[in-house]
Structures are given as structure tokens and as C-alpha cells.
Design a protein around this nucleic acid. Structure first.
Lengths: 196, 196, 196, 196
DNA sequence: AATGAATGAGCGTTCATTCAT
DNA sequence: CATGAATGAACGCTCATTCAT
């Protein structure tokens, strides 16, 4: 007979309690490793209550994703809003800075929510090899005077991730990919980013 | 007493059988959804045999990741090998094209091995929202004559993924991140990729 | 604040609403597979209201059984009522025809209410095996000129079910059964039904 | 570390252990009310072991039904086997007595396995009303000298159950039922069983 | 080296029932 | 009378891992 008060809460509040508890746990241990019971316990309700608000574990993950996306977009748009309408480079710059800021605060949440990517640096395993290789290439080119790259590793990471993302998306789209065109586009983007 | 022959195989062969079977299954249904028993069955050995070669399910995933990385690097290095030593832009170009080619063939394996990624809408709705937003920005800037971007969506994807990758890495590194510096670096890379 | 009208109904009406809703659902999906919530939803009341009228899920099942029995008896009695008082064979005939008619209309409800019977192959394979066996016996006897049985399968079914029912009842009564007597009685009934 | 011996048993033995344990429990509390864990506990194995031998709770119920049917048929056939080939009434008599004997020993198992019919006399609720009615009719007819029925209640039970079984089967068959014909057949069977 | 029977913790989900409003 | 949010015990099933043979 503890909490005699507020056995009933406004639905949005209960829902939010559950989402907050889930987010905390998902961040700490990943989605798969978090059980419904842990979520309800952290939210201070009974197990069955979870199913009053969400049909499924997946449903709460999706709701969290939605909420995450809203916040993110708001931040980025706010960053651009201050730039004069005609200043396009300024807008691009604001976009980049806004996005960096927003993701820096939430990247782990993003990754946990959209890839199940807990163990830090798991993704690194392979990618590091490739990124290391590109980093060396960039440094060598710089040493040879071919270009100037202030931070070879960050650049290599950026190019590799960009390339990877483009390919992922192409794959997901599923329609036949025009390999030549894709190759050329990606090569051009790398080229310009490095050579300017 | 049937198959009296070859009950015993060279350890490396057994190990490879298991890895090949696992890779096939991981690709088909994901890592979590593949059971040890399915792997051993596909490899034609008993369940217990698995544990003679790998300590853990995670261990075989890691071994597969290792093997994957080796193959990838080989392909990319081969692509560069043909470029004259002094032609740095050519090397960068070769790197990009080699990497695109290599990942196009294996992106699904990569993602399944390093994120638990089940194809459609792997990247959450989130990313799409942000990428859409940047795509619009790029198109608007182009319409205003601020820059020329052949394929705004691919470019947006590239920049977003690059940015995301850089932040992920920064986070994983864990040490205090210099937000200003990171921001500036990323903004510059975006800037050059777009403005040239 | 909508439906301010008729939030309250005469208790018998509410009770009937619930029973009707429950009967419909029990018929469609069985008793066990029907939840209280489905019943209240179909009856247009809140979950808790159910417990104002019935103590238990079992209680509503029992009430439905009661109601079912009343209706049945009325039909059968009506069928007999038209037969002249002195015509006993006629009464027996009327009983049989009345009962067949009444049950044909409601057998599914009966079975769902009293056994948890989901239609196809309710009676297990078992019964079929035994009935098949008796059917063969009846046919063989007829071929040998020992008796005449218009429809061997229906007869076999009838005898088997009759026998089964008698034994079930004996078992339920629980008191020590006089096996010899029971055996003799059943054998005699089978005998007369077949040999006349 | 108790039972160091016989951690592994011949599969048929384990399977039989599980079936025996399940049968005991099903008889005691019904199928639905028996949990897998109770079965495995009673069989002296771990929960997971159950699924090495049966895919599903329903699967063990079915296996038990199969086993039950085999035994039953054997008993009845044995009863008939002793009757001279030409003695058809004797065969019918033997069938009836054999079936009664066999089912007397196992009726509860049969009912639990094929209908979920635990609470004794649940089935009675309705059926009793109808059977009582027929019993009265039979007694009244006898009092009037219309027929002679040694045990009116058993006869009424027999006729009612026979009728019920025939209708159930007709319903399950599902094809359009010829109500007139069915009625006539059943009436005739009742008639002969009573009037001789 | 190889087997595969056995284990048992763990999980997502359901639902009859209660009770504060 | 009526509501419906909250409860929490219960259950079927999965599967990585162990170990006697």
C-alpha cells in the first residue's frame, strides 16, 4: 500500500514515464538486452501496464525514434534560421554546425535506436582498417605536396562514412544501381573535399 | 557407424565450414536470428562441435568480421596499385572507386556483421528527415546560383553520412571532444565538397 | 460527456447485452479464446461493468448454459404437446424428432458451452476408429443376413455415442458402478436397436 | 550433482516418461491447467527437455490420444475375436460389452484428451434437463403399458447421447444435412431400442 | 575430435480481476 | 451504476552453453 496517491496518471505522463525509462535503459544496455520488465520497473509500474501503452517492444523503440527525430530536426532548423536568406554558403555552414551539435549530443541514442550498435567501436573493427589506409594515403599525398588536409584522420573518416552511407542507401533502394555513375559521383565528392 | 571416413577434418577446414555456414545464415536472417544449431546443421557437424572452434556466438561473428576486413583491404589496395606513384589525385580517385566497388558487393555483409541491420529502412526515419532537409537546401542553393550540385540527394547523403561517421568515431573515442574544432572541420569538408 | 442518455440501463437489459455478446463470441472463437474485454467491448460497456453482473468468466458461461437449456426444453415439450395423450409411440417419436430439430439448430452452442469444442475433428481420431470398426461389423452382419440396418454409419454413431454417454454419466455419478449390469443394459439396447 | 547415472536415456524412454507424466497431470487437472513445467518436473527433466521430444503442448496431447486409441481398439477387437464367426448377434453383444469395459476404464482420459471436460458433470447442466424429461416420458409410457424399459434413466441417457452424437457428426461433416432423413433415422433407432 | 542429450535462465505477452474515481 | 487504468501471476517457448560418452 505505498503510493496511495496517483495510482492513475494522465496517459501522456505514463507514456512518457515509460519512454524515458526505456530510453535510459536502451542507452545503457541496448535494445535487445533491455527487457520489458526492466522498463516497467524503472518506470514504477507493473509489467502489464506496459502493454496498455505500447503493443510491443518494437513499438516503444519506434516511438522513441520518432521523438528523437523531431528534436533533431528542430535544432538543425533553428541553426539555419538565423542566417540571412541570401547567404547560401552560410546556410550550408550553419547546417553542418547545427547537425554536428545536435548529433554530438545524441549520437549514441541514435545508433542504439536505429542500428543495434552498443559495444563501442564494434563498427570500428573493419572500418578502421579501411580508414587507416585512407588516412595514410591522405598523409602521403600531403607530404608530397599534392593537397593540404588539416586533419587527415577526420577527413578519411568523413569520406569513408559518406561513401558508405551512399552505398547503403543505394542498396536499400534496391533498384539496380548504376555502378559507374555512383562511382563517379562519390569519387568527385571525395576529390573536391580534398583538393577543394 | 556410417560415415566412418572423414569424421575428422583438418581444423582449419572445419573452422572454415562453420564460418561459411554462419556467414550464409547471418546474411539471410541476421545474427541474432541465427542459432548455433542452424550453423552447425548447415556445416554438417554436431552442435557441440561448434564450441571446439569458437568460444561464443560473438566469437564467430568477430572472426567473420576479421575475414571480411582482410578481403576488403586487398581489393582497395589492388585498385590503387595500378596508379603511377606520383599521381595523387589519381590515387584518391582509385581509392574511391575501389572502395565503392568493394562495398557495393559486400555492404549487406558488412552491415549485418557490424550493425545488426535488417535491410529495409535500416537507417531510421530520422536520417531520412535530415537528409531530405539537406537535399532541399542544396537544391535551393543551386536554384539561387550559389553552387552546382549534380545530384543533390546523393550529395546530401554523402555529407550526412560523413558527418555522422565522424561524430560516431569521436564519441567512441570517448575522450573529451573539442566541439568547436570538430564542427569547423566538418563544416569545411561539407563546404569544399559542395562549393569546390 | 457524450452519451449522457442511457448510461444506466435496467439491470436485466445490461445482463442480457453481456450474455448475448458473450454467446456470439463464444460461438465464434470458443470460450477460452474469448476475453472479458472482448465481451464488454461487444456489449458496449466498460470492462469493470462485467463484474457488476457476473462474478467470473465461468459464471457467464454457466448462465448461458442455463438459458440454453431452458430454450431447448421448451422446444421439445412443444413437439410432444401435439400428440394425443394415449399415443405413446407417437410421443417417443415426437420427442426424438423434436430433440433432433432443436439440437441441429444449436449443437455448436451446446458443445462450445459444455465441452470446449472447436469444430473440426472435435471427437478425436479415437472415436472414428471405434465407429469405423462398428460400422464394418454392422455391414458385415447385414451382408450375412443377420440383420437389416438402413444406414450402418449413422447407426454405429448412434450406438457408440449412446454407449459413451452412459459411461460418462456413470463415471460422473462416481459411485461404484455395477459393471456387469451396465454392460448388460448397454448390450441390450444395442441389440434391440439393431435387431429390433 | 545427484543422479550421475543415466543423464542420458534412450529417447523412447524419455518420451514415455514425459507422456506418462503428462497423462497423469492431464487426468488430474485437465490439459489447459497443466503447464509444461509441471510435466517436466513430474518427469524429472528440465523444462527445455520437453521440447526435445514434442514441438508443442498440443503435440503431446495428440500423442497421448494416439496411444489411447491404439489400446482401445485392441481391447474391443480382442472381445470379438472369441465369438464364432457366424454368430452375429453374439458379435454385436461382444462389441458392446468390450466397448463398455474399455471405456469404463478410460473414459475420463478419453474426455480430457478429446474434449476439455474436467469439471465433473459440467456436461450435465443442460443434458440433465433433457434426459430427465425423456426419463419421465419413458416411465410414464411404461406405467401406461406402452412398453417395458428396465432402467428408464440409462435408456434415456443412451438415446439422448446417441442422438447427440449423430447430430454432432452431421454438423462436423458440414455438408448440408438432410434434416428429415436424419430425424427419421434417429426416431427409428429410438423407437426400436424402446419398443423392440 | 566429435557428439547430441540435457540444462535452465530468460523473455515477450496475455488476461482475469481489482479498485479509486 | 459505471468506468478503465493498473495489476501481477502465469505460461509457452527459445537457445547458448555444458558435459558424459
Amino acid at each position: 500500500m505505498p503510493t496511495k496517491l496517483a495510482r492513475t496518471k494522465p496517459p501522456e505522463a505514463r507514456r512518457a514515464d515509460l519512454m524515458n525509462a526505456a530510453q535510459r535503459l536502451f542507452l545503457r544496455r541496448g535494445v535487445a538486452a533491455t527487457s520489458i520488465e526492466q522498463i516497467t520497473e524503472a518506470a514504477g509500474v507493473a509489467k502489464g501496464t506496459f502493454y496498455l501503452y505500447f503493443d510491443t517492444k518494437e513499438a516503444i523503440r519506434a516511438a522513441l525514434g520518432e521523438r528523437f527525430a523531431q528534436g533533431l530536426l528542430a535544432v538543425i532548423e533553428a541553426a539555419i534560421a538565423n542566417v540571412p536568406a541570401a547567404d547560401w554558403p552560410g546556410k550550408l555552414d550553419a547546417w553542418a554546425r547545427g547537425a554536428v551539435a545536435a548529433y554530438l549530443d545524441a549520437i549514441r541514442l541514435h545508433d542504439v535506436l536505429f542500428y543495434e550498435a552498443h559495444p563501442p567501436n564494434r563498427r570500428g573493427a573493419t572500418d578502421n582498417v579501411i580508414v587507416d589506409h585512407l588516412t595514410s594515403l591522405l598523409r602521403a599525398g600531403e607530404a608530397a605536396g599534392a593537397w593540404a588536409v588539416p586533419d587527415a584522420r577526420v577527413t578519411a573518416l568523413f569520406l569513408f562514412s559518406g561513401l558508405h552511407g551512399v552505398i547503403d542507401a543505394a542498396q536499400v533502394a534496391g533498384n539496380r544501381v548504376d555502378r559507374r555513375a555512383l562511382s563517379a559521383r562519390v569519387a568527385r565528392l571525395c576529390f573536391r573535399a580534398v583538393i577543394g
